[in-house]
Nucleic acid binder design. Structure first.
Lengths: 156, 156
DNA sequence: TTCGATGCAAATAGTTTGCATTCTA
DNA sequence: TAGAATGCAAACTATTTGCATCGAA
């Protein structure tokens, strides 16, 4: 059977998040559930704009301003994390295992890496500069393997 | 000798950059020189907006669109580097010793650190993920020592 | 003289805000 | 029913683009 490209929602994760919302005294609305469902659909990192488009498909009529306000609330509530990629865009994801992000400056690919990779540098920055690193909050920019390869070929 | 806090323009650095512009066949204009002077005045990282304001003082009449276009050109020419801080803003600086940036999410402070601090993690990312890190291009987000201190005091 | 650089104005993208209305709890 | 959340429209900020003009080489 051909692979379905329809993103699978993770109902359990959504239910947990909704429960947490209730527990915090926030209200559970159509827009919020839709946004949580969209964020649960895939591991991919989605910008506010991506979220708005996807929400538009499962819950038409949700206004863009609501998307922004709700994403903000969800971040404040600790249910959603956002990461700053290069070029100013922020991407959102349900808070699961925190991880760091590598972004390729050529093709835009985002690679998730376990935070353990940054533990050593984090310790060093704390020791030397008193700086407490938040490894998941901004992407590290660079060039991915395949773009790197393309560079090398081109330079011959 | 005491450090001067007045932003000193670095004429030599500007001259070098101007020479490089000429060498590349680009034209040397009032706007470009002014922007280079502004970028040479201080070690601080300046946003496009900061640059526009400072240029406005030494060379009135330079249009904002020119600031953006020129910063772009200078980056392409390799004379200027830009770094993505959190929240989407980019800051520009003359390309001198490349360095990494730590940004405090509370107070916005930017700390420059030698790239050597990131060498180990860079090697690791290359080995494990084939990702070539560009350590100066995005800031690492976290919390600086004094804000950290404030946090601790507050939580008592 | 030529063509790259600039000024201007308008368009665009992304995000935020005030206010009246809706709907969860 | 109260007040949180939403829809709507408009404001805002940051940045980009087309086009005519200017000016460095």
């Amino acid at each position: 059977m051909a692979a379905r490209t329809v993103p699978t929602r993770n109902a359990a994760r959504v239910a947990t998040a909704v429960g947490e919302l209730r527990a915090q005294g926030s209200r559970v609305t159509k827009a919020r559930v839709a946004i949580l469902e969209v964020l649960s659909t895939s591991e991919a990192h989605q910008s506010a704009d991506d979220v708005a488009k996807a929400v538009g498909e499962i819950a038409p009529g949700v206004h863009r301003a609501t998307i922004y306000r709700t994403l903000d609330s969800l971040v404040s509530a600790g249910l959603v994390a956002h990461t700053h990629l290069g070029h100013g865009t922020a991407v959102y994801q349900l808070t699961i295992a925190p991880h760091a992000h590598l972004q390729c400056q050529r093709c835009g690919l985002v690679i998730d890496v376990p935070q353990s990779n940054l533990r050593a540098v984090g310790k060093r920055l704390l020791d030397d500069f008193g700086f407490t690193l938040d490894p998941g909050h901004s992407a590290l920019l660079g060039v991915c393997a395949s773009c790197r390869q393309a560079d090398v070929l081109q330079s011959v």
